[in-house]
Structures are given as structure tokens and as C-alpha cells.
Nucleic acid binder design. Structure first.
Length: 613
DNA sequence: AATTACCGTCCTGCCCGCTC
DNA sequence: GAGCGGGCAGGACGGTAATT
């Protein structure tokens, strides 16, 4: 039996010994064959080693190897760095060019063409910070600004930061008490011994347990209370037949009363996003101002008309093309005409027959609407998903947003003639009877500053400025918001009235199912490194980690602040996350969702002063 | 830490020259 | 002419250090 698994140096040592003993190469080869069999060395190699040792070689190990020589010299390195710098600089300038171009609009055409400034640049970041504002401010604002400055200087830009002249951060504070005050009925009502749905016979017991009486005067005189107590509740029966069904039929009611639950799909069932028209952008913004005409008070009735709104100026903005403004009594009629013209223009463009460009199968790999890849059997059509076709409804945004509120004397302005006043009004004119407050000194000083800075002559011009900045800032902020949402989530937030609705759609759209269509999983690999090495690649891990991070971020940043302990992770997988939501109350949801975008009620004007810098 | 280019070694296949 | 000793070409394999 031959020697198994010999080391290379072992066979070479044997050869060296046999040569030293004076054996011929053939004798050496025969002995090696006898000892090691086919695990030994072949004839050519034995002869070569015999020759080496006869010539005086002593080492039985491999010679030193040089390894991979460096082909880079200093001048090549320098050339590459220069080229990289040049490319980076060209790329930066290219980006800057587009940014600058977006800021201007061309008015008129031909020889007299002129560029006009049309964009005000603001950064809008929507984040819900539940607690720890200082921490958030340090990490998201201070650190990110410093990091970007360091990167800017480190990129061999040739520029050096000397000092920051101005940095304004506006924080829209949102007060969770407004939504948190909606209490679960089980925390305030004593329900011992009461079953749901509540039987008619149990109402009396319920009343005495909680010391309240039920009031049903406007719904149905189904039952009147026997004794009036201090507190009253309105019992709103949303579905009477459902409530009493189990009491009048033999079939038991299996549903729950006033208790909503979202059930997420089971393992083998995929949710898929199909409402692709919600990806379309909104591009139309309008705002108007009214005089508040005081009405005669009729004290005999409980309700009377106190003021009447009469529109006197109007501004609208169509993204990327048009910005119009008008101030007079007929502005509404003018706006109606403008809308009609706009509709006609759009119709002219849409109804014009334009010959389609010739397209081949090589043109596109993915559908531009749903981003799914084409398969060879697909029929050739322009748009394979016709979801865009019947989009007749355009959401029109009218929200009041300003980076810094320019105050306006709404109540003083009761007729259009007052717009000819030639000085800013005294502080008392800004009294608002709804809030019972007048303006702060800080706001009034800001208004004075604006009046002087823009050389304003009349109150009408002040109003024009107010209205224009209102619409332009709104448009700009909402455009940024749309951009950020479409880039990050692929959906336009303008189509969703509540944040839960938006985030749930986004959750479906962004889960790994869609990613699977784009990532080709390598099952077999014939290279020198096997499939294990393939999976161990950093970019493979990077894909998994990125999506896991996205999913967890979605859970912690969106779901938890909205639903707190009602939302729990059921299970996680490499690419999926399952959540369970308990008892979601639609009323409290809507309040939470809408308040972050409503700065009228919750804006805190001088909040930046309290933040460290 | 993975990848890559280079290089030594091993192996197969073939050829050449010498000897019996 | 067959067998033997010796060597070369080129591909496969794997170690090494530069590079990414």
C-alpha cells in the first residue's frame, strides 16, 4: 500500500536524499512510484528535481514569488486624480446648471425674451419627532450641516468655508394632546357584566354602573332614559340592523361593534400596488384673499351672520409654466375665465393628433408606470397599464404655509377702498376676534421691515406681496414635499388625505416583492469562488441590510409614532416585516395625520431661539 | 475582506537523441 | 526499431501581494 496524502516538500526531501545516496533519476522515480503510487510525482517533475539537487539546490520548498507587481506610477496617480477632480467639478457644475435653470422662467419669446426669477428655495423635511427634540436637532441639523461642509471642503473644491452668514430653521410643532385626548371607551366606562353588542335589557344596568344616561334624541327614539343624571352620552348607532340582528334572529353576531382591525396578508398571499395614477404629480396651486364685511347683528336669534367674506384678490400658479395674479372685485369671474382658457389649452394639446414615434422591443425593458419588466409574449402597446387613462380629477392644494408668517389685518379689511391706505396700520388693527389676540411685537416689527424693504406704498400692494409669497412658498414647499415623497416612496402625497392611508400604500409599494423583480438571485456559480463566496459579497449583504433598515425605519418612524403600543411587529424575515394593528380609531388617526401640515394652529413662532447652535 | 494579476509548480502530451 | 533518459510547450492549479 502506498503512502497517502504526501506533502510536496516530503517527496522533494525523499528525492534529495536518494540523489545524495547516488541513485540515478530513473531509480529515484521508480522508488517514488513504489512509495507513493499515483499520489506521488510524475516522471518529468522527478527528473527536474533530481537535476535541481544535483546542481546544488538545498531548499525543498517553493521559491519566493514576486506577487502582483504594481503598475501604477506616481505620474499615473496624479493624472487619475486630476481627471477625477475635473469630472467631479463638471458634474457639480452640471447639477448647478439645472438648479439655476429651474429658478427662472422665460417670459415672452423671440428677441425681447427675458428671464424672470420664479423660485424661492426652501428645504422642507417632514419628520415626526415624538420626543427628544434637542437630540434630534443635534443629529439631524447640526451634524448633517457640519458633515456636508466637511465633505464640501474635502472634495478638493478649492473653496473654503469662512463663516455661516444666516441659517434659519423653522420648526412646526405639533401638539399630540389634540389627538391623544381621544380616550378609549374602556378606560372611562365601567363595563363589568356588559356584553358587546349590548343588549337592550343591559342599557339600564350600564347607566347605573357609570352614572350616566344615554341620549338618543336626534337618531331614533328607540329608548328614553328613566332618570336624568349629571353626565350624558350620545349613543350613536351606526348600523341598527347589525346591532339587533343577533337579538331578533337565531344567527349569532360574530362581528365586533365599533372595533376596527387591519388584517395583514398571510405568508402565501402578496399584496400588490395597483393604483398607479397616484404617482402622478400635482401642479396647480391657488389662493385668494377676502375682505371681511361686518354684518348687522340680529340679537333675537341664536345664530347670526357676523362677517361676510368677499374675495378681492386671487393668485394661481401652474407648475413650470404660469403664474398669474389679479386684484379687483371681479377676480373670481376672471379666475373662472382663466380656468376655462387653461382647460381649452390643455384640451388643444391633448386632442391634437401626433404621430407616434416608432418603437422597438429594444427601447424599453420595464413599464414606466408599474416598473415591471416586459416578457417576450407581451403585446406591443404604448402603455400596457391603462390606469393613467381616466385621470380626470386633479387634486388642488390650498393650504396656508409660510416660512415666516407675514401678518395681515383680516378684520380691518372690510371694504376694498381701504386697500388704498398708504401706511401700515397700528398694532390694534390686527386684532382677531376669533382668537381674541392681537399680534406680537416681533411680528409687527417684521411686517414693518417688509413694508420698508419692498418699498410698499399702499395696503393693496402689501396684500399683493402677502398673497404672492403665500402661493409661491406654498407651491415651492409642496413641490419639494412631492419630490421627496415621490423619490423616496414613489407616491404623491397629494392624493392621500391621511398619513396612515399614505404610509399603508407606501408599505405595499415598497416591500421586497417589487425588489425581487429587480434582483437576480444567483443559484449556481461556476467561477473560481463558489456561490457561498457570491453570497458573502458585501454588495449582496448591502441589499439585504438596506431593505431591512428601510422596513425597520418604516416601523419605528411612521407606524410607532402613529399607533404607539397598538402596533407590534409580528415576525421578521430577511425581506419582510409583519405588523399587527389593534383597534385603530379613525377619528383620532385623522387628527394626528392632519395636524403636522397645519401650521395655522400649532406654529410656534420664536421656537428657534430656544434651540442651541 | 474580497478580488485580481502574476508567477511557481504540477501535469499532460509530445519530441529528440542515445543505446541496445 | 524499441526503449529509455531528458527536455519543452502549454494549460491547470494554487500561493502571494497589490488593489479595490
Amino acid at each position: 500500500m502506498s503512502i497517502q496524502s504526501p506533502a510536496k516538500c516530503e517527496i522533494r526531501s525523499v528525492i534529495r536524499y536518494l540523489i545524495w545516496k547516488g541513485k540515478t533519476p530513473v531509480e529515484v522515480y521508480n522508488k517514488v512510484q513504489t512509495a507513493y503510487g499515483d499520489k506521488g510525482m510524475n516522471r518529468t517533475s522527478v527528473f527536474k528535481w533530481c537535476r535541481e539537487f544535483k546542481n546544488g539546490r538545498t531548499s525543498v520548498h517553493d521559491d519566493q514569488r514576486s506577487g502582483r507587481p504594481s503598475i501604477l506610477t506616481d505620474d499615473i496617480v496624479e493624472k487619475i486624480e486630476n481627471a477625477n477632480n475635473l469630472i467631479a467639478r463638471i458634474a457639480r457644475l452640471e447639477n448647478l446648471k439645472d438648479t439655476v435653470r429651474e429658478c427662472f422662467v422665460q417670459v415672452d419669446a423671440g428677441y425681447s425674451a427675458e428671464l424672470r426669477w420664479r423660485k424661492i428655495d426652501t428645504m422642507f423635511e417632514s419628520r415626526i419627532v415624538v420626543s427628544g427634540l434637542q437630540e434630534w436637532y443635534a443629529s439631524r441639523v447640526v451634524e448633517s450641516v457640519l458633515t456636508s461642509l466637511e465633505e464640501f471642503q474635502g472634495r478638493n473644491s478649492g473653496w473654503m468655508l469662512s463663516r455661516i452668514l444666516n441659517l434659519t430653521i423653522n420648526v412646526n410643532k405639533y401638539n399630540p394632546l389634540h389627538a391623544g385626548s381621544y380616550l378609549h371607551y374602556s378606560t372611562v366606562l365601567n363595563l363589568t357584566g356588559i356584553q358587546f353588542p349590548m343588549m337592550l335589557s343591559q342599557i339600564k344596568k350600564f347607566e347605573s354602573l357609570n352614572d350616566i344616561s344615554e341620549k338618543q334624541k336626534e337618531i331614533l327614539p328607540l329608548r328614553l332614559t328613566y332618570r336624568k343624571r349629571g353626565k350624558q352620552i350620545n349613543l350613536l348607532i351606526k348600523d341598527l340592523s347589525r346591532l339587533v340582528r343577533s337579538q331578533i334572529t337565531a344567527r349569532k353576531n360574530t362581528g365586533k361593534f365599533n372595533n376596527y382591525e387591519i388584517r395583514l396578508p398571510s405568508e402565501d398571499k402578496w399584496l400588490s400596488f395597483s393604483n398607479h395614477r397616484r404617482k402622478e404629480r400635482v401642479s396647480f396651486y391657488v389662493d385668494l384673499e377676502c375682505t371681511l364685511q361686518k354684518m348687522k347683528m340680529d340679537m333675537k336669534t341664536f345664530s347670526y351672520t357676523y362677517q361676510q367674506h368677499r374675495a378681492f384678490s386671487l393668485t394661481y400658479y401652474v407648475h413650470c409654466s404660469m403664474y398669474r395674479f389679479r386684484r379687483d372685485n371681479d377676480c373670481i369671474a376672471w379666475f373662472a375665465k382663466e380656468l376655462k382658457n387653461l382647460a381649452h389649452n390643455v384640451n388643444t394639446i391633448l386632442s391634437a393628433n401626433i404621430s407616434m414615434a416608432v418603437f422597438t422591443r429594444d427601447d424599453a425593458m420595464y413599464c414606466h408606470v408599474c416598473e415591471k419588466p416586459f416578457v417576450p409574449d407581451d403585446t406591443w402597446v404604448r402603455d400596457h397599464n391603462l390606469n393613467y387613462k381616466d385621470l380626470y380629477c386633479i387634486p388642488i392644494i390650498e393650504i396656508y404655509l409660510l416660512t415666516r408668517k407675514v401678518i395681515f389685518p383680516y378684520e380691518y379689511d372690510d371694504c376694498i377702498e381701504k386697500l388704498e391706505d398708504t401706511c401700515l396700520l397700528p398694532c390694534e388693527s390686527f386684532y382677531n376676534s376669533l382668537t381674541g389676540n392681537t399680534v406680537s411685537e416681533n411680528d409687527y416689527a417684521h411686517a414693518m421691515n417688509v413694508w420698508q424693504r419692498f418699498s410698499i406704498r399702499t395696503l393693496g400692494e402689501y396684500n399683493d406681496l402677502y398673497l404672492k409669497t403665500d402661493v409661491l412658498l406654498l407651491a415651492n414647499i409642496f413641490e419639494n414635499f412631492q419630490d421627496s415623497c415621490i423619490t423616496n416612496y414613489g407616491l404623491n402625497p397629494a392624493y392621500y388625505y391621511t398619513l396612515p392611508g399614505f404610509t399603508f400604500r407606501e408599505y405595499i409599494e415598497q416591500t421586497m416583492e417589487n425588489v425581487r423583480n429587480h434582483v437576480r438571485l444567483v443559484m449556481r456559480w461556476d467561477g473560481r469562488y463558489g456561490v457561498e463566496a457570491m453570497i458573502a459579497k458585501p454588495n449582496f449583504h448591502c441589499i439585504l441590510d438596506t431593505f431591512k433598515t428601510c422596513l425597520y425605519e418604516f416601523h419605528h418612524e411612521y407606524m410607532l409614532p402613529l399607533f404607539y403600543e397598538k402596533c407590534k411587529i409580528m415576525y421578521t424575515d430577511t425581506d419582510r416585516i409583519g405588523s399587527k394593528l389593534h383597534e385603530i380609531y379613525t377619528i383620532s388617526e385623522s387628527k394626528i395625520a392632519l395636524s403636522p401640515y397645519d401650521d395655522k394652529r400649532y406654529s410656534v413662532s420664536d421656537s428657534t431661539d430656544t434651540l442651541p447652535w
